[in-house]
């Protein structure tokens, strides 16, 4: 937990394709405040600046739910993921979906209640871990939502009393997903719809397919760049 993958404004060495863990893209302010901009799981890639040619990231990427990923050296990525490849085109579309997700967080962070935002965040995690159960530190959840820990604690108790989740000692269980969706703001649905529109066709059909990267990485990469990937544990 809390492994930082990139330091701000440093050359990115690797791009990461999570296969079951979750990575948060966060902004850290001068006085230590942290707010999450986006969540990346097996639907995506961490290291978009390498794709776009910027090569560095202003914010940080930290591991939020421990798990596995495959990674590729940035220079190899640039050489192998050529513009005519399916992966390249998918990644461009993914970049736009990611932008939509961050834009929606701008609205959500300003306009919606902590309870709504917490539900959104849990649904996003639930989609990515492919399990009803995951480990989640309360302090970390507070950071992700940009609020104080007692506030998050209060929200978690409310959701638990309503039977939506079970949460104790850093272990989160999603009990009633449908009610969680009902308690959430519209932001979750808008982003999910956009991800599906942009990525659900073609090889990205593997979006809902067990412990695989949403880009259909297994099939893609074996043909293209198999030797270049390293597995992380």
């Amino acid at each position: 937990m809390k492994q930082s993958i990139y330091a701000p404004n440093q050359l990115i060495e690797y791009v990461y394709f999570p296969t079951d863990g979750i990575i948060s893209l966060v902004n850290v302010t001068k006085n230590g405040g942290i707010v999450e901009a986006a969540t990346v799981g097996n639907e995506g890639m961490v290291g978009i600046p390498v794709l776009l040619g910027g090569d560095e990231m202003v914010g940080q990427a930290i591991v939020q739910v421990a798990g596995d990923a495959v990674r590729m050296k940035a220079d190899i990525f640039k050489r192998e993921v050529t513009p005519d490849s399916t992966l390249h085109n998918l990644l461009l579309r993914y970049t736009l979906a990611l932008m939509t997700s961050i834009s929606q967080s701008v609205a959500c962070n300003s306009l919606h209640s902590v309870k709504q935002r917490c539900c959104r965040w849990l649904l996003i995690c639930h989609d990515r871990v492919k399990s009803d159960y995951f480990e989640l530190n309360q302090e970390f959840l507070a950071q992700m939502l940009g609020v104080q820990r007692p506030t998050v604690s209060g929200v978690a108790i409310t959701l638990q009393q309503a039977g939506l989740i079970r949460y104790s000692r850093g272990k989160m269980t999603i009990c009633d997903r449908r009610s969680l969706e009902a308690a959430c703001c519209e932001c979750y649905g808008i982003v999910k719809q956009e991800f599906e529109r942009l990525l659900k066709d073609g090889v990205a059909q593997k979006w809902n397919d067990g412990n695989r990267n949403g880009f259909g990485l297994e099939a893609q990469i074996q043909q293209q760049v198999n030797d270049q990937l390293e597995h992380l544990h």
């Binding site: 902004n27 302010t29 901009a37 776009l52 910027g54 914010g59 932008m99 961050i102 701008v106 940009g146």
Partner: peptide
């Protein structure tokens, strides 16, 4: 430019919260 735009939006997400 796309990257700078995403940076701007991310910063706004933090700014609006904090």
């Amino acid at each position: 430019y796309m990257q700078t735009l995403m940076n701007q939006i991310s910063q706004t997400a933090a700014c609006n919260r904090l």
